[in-house]
Design a protein around this nucleic acid. Sequence first.
DNA 1: TTGAAAGCGCTAACAC
DNA 2: GTGTTAGCGCTTTCAA
Lengths: 337, 337
Amino acid sequence: MSTLNDGKKKVTIYSVAHEAGVSLATVSRVINDSSLVKEETRKRVEEAIVKLGYRPNAIAQGLALKKTTTIALVIPDSSFLYMGKIINGLLDVAKIYKYNIALHTTSSSINEMSEIIDNIVKSRADGVIVYNDCLTEQEVAVLNSFSTPMVYIGHKIKADEACNVFVDYKKALYELTDKYIQEGYKDIVLIEDKKNPMMMDELLQGIKKGFKKHNKEFAGLIEIPDNYHNSYDYLNEYFKDNKHQLVITVRDSQAMAVLNACTENGISIPEETDLVCVMDSRYTDMVRPRISSFFIPSYDLGALAMRVMTKMLNDDEVKEKEYQLSYIYKNKASTKV
Amino acid sequence: MSTLNDGKKKVTIYSVAHEAGVSLATVSRVINDSSLVKEETRKRVEEAIVKLGYRPNAIAQGLALKKTTTIALVIPDSSFLYMGKIINGLLDVAKIYKYNIALHTTSSSINEMSEIIDNIVKSRADGVIVYNDCLTEQEVAVLNSFSTPMVYIGHKIKADEACNVFVDYKKALYELTDKYIQEGYKDIVLIEDKKNPMMMDELLQGIKKGFKKHNKEFAGLIEIPDNYHNSYDYLNEYFKDNKHQLVITVRDSQAMAVLNACTENGISIPEETDLVCVMDSRYTDMVRPRISSFFIPSYDLGALAMRVMTKMLNDDEVKEKEYQLSYIYKNKASTKV
DNA sequence: TTGAAAGCGCTAACAC
DNA sequence: GTGTTAGCGCTTTCAA
């Protein structure tokens, strides 16, 4: 009977103004908490708003104010297990500051990346938060030319306009390597992770530095296929003829592939081989033996990134550009040292 | 020296029109691929666009066209491991149709949920894709009153205006239960997952139906604490005095908790107890023994949801409202049957 | 304390 | 083919 919610009633600021018998300017003042509105008028307007079920149109506000209160987030399309915590951190503080998050994922195609940038620019996001390798210098330049504030998660970047939120993986691996060499370990290998080239680079640097300190040279980088099943098959063959004192992997799935391949080839962990997974995940605690790993504060990485972003958006000049968070090494059952 | 990228040059459709010596209407026609533009003019405009680095302002377009080409996605803030694949599927087809995704996560607080809805309405998303339990009927009603197209992922909902994309978990569990009872199993238990009440309900219905078929009554629902560590501790105690023929869990972490707790209490899987994890994940293949599970087509669930959404946005009337995807049972090393 | 009016950048009739 | 103009829904001076 009633036509209240029937058709697509478009309630605008005009409808409210009309209903309340005021001008649209006054309504605008009310919804923006401007103080210069008589209490009585405010009440009338608020009633009209409720009565009509009015919600300000953020798009129109965006046009008028030249800001969208949305932040673009660019992440790789692969591992949501790791990105998940970052996203949670990010969204939690985005909520506090009333920012929306537009999610963009990158697959490897380079062509596609410029489309994403284009998209972000068109959508006039107030800022961009980018994970690691996702952007090239060129793309950063495009963003900069539109003076879009940017924060990088995961590693340091040189771009003038960008802030960085990161963990010092180089240091982590340096310390680990150093410790192991001091314990007399000689045969240390690192399993490559093709999905994280930048991070790999840092890890390698850390290990090399550790070796150099002891006047040795690192030559233990092992390339394996991409996904779990392929890499497991590969390693299953590999460990038929090879054995190492310490194996370091980047992600949990690689560590588990090593664990399974070793076990099935009669190499016991940690008795014969120590195993360390750089990036912690809950699953490293679920397998047996539990896998030693670094706790990476992913949630905080995300939360901090967003916090820094709001800072850039509000303060004109952000003094601090680099924010380093620290890891914690968790010694578990897969290592003797 | 040059001021090209220096200040925040705001290049609008006017700048381009001026640069090309045409009216803004013509520029609009060019960027919208309207055919009625002389080739020569088009070229001139395109050059001006490149020269000035012009990108249409999606916000202004949104205002003029009354659509934003963004879809709001509402998911629980917990497991990105499972949501990850759904998101990937969703984003892949969103890219094809040039839609943006605004990500919203819900924590349990009810208060907060209405804020999210408010936010979505204000942002004038063209549509909303919601995972499972995330919305109450009331909230659906609000969305409907703004005639926002909606698709639900994960289970059937009765809302008139919404489409559903789902997997029939009830049937899956019914079949599983039936098979096991036929094999003579009597002592079957289901571990509760508090994070997925709706899904739990379906699973329970399926099991009960299976029991009823054999004139039995199911009474094996086990409540355990929420996260992995607590539930592992709990189960470690539990399996000191208990043993079952078949244990069913919802997620991989629960299955692994059961696996570890059983093993550490001398209950061997699958010799003494069969273990099934309903929701497949790569990790169920990484532990030993590999855990039997259902393959859930998460990626397709996401992709289909987005596809259905574009359909709703383009066709006025969508005939098909329910889209069922099928699971595949994967019999692995944790089960004898 | 309130209202009138000029944008914000773009699309879409409607003219020419 | 191309230009003119009236919105889209809101914010924000500037007057009153």
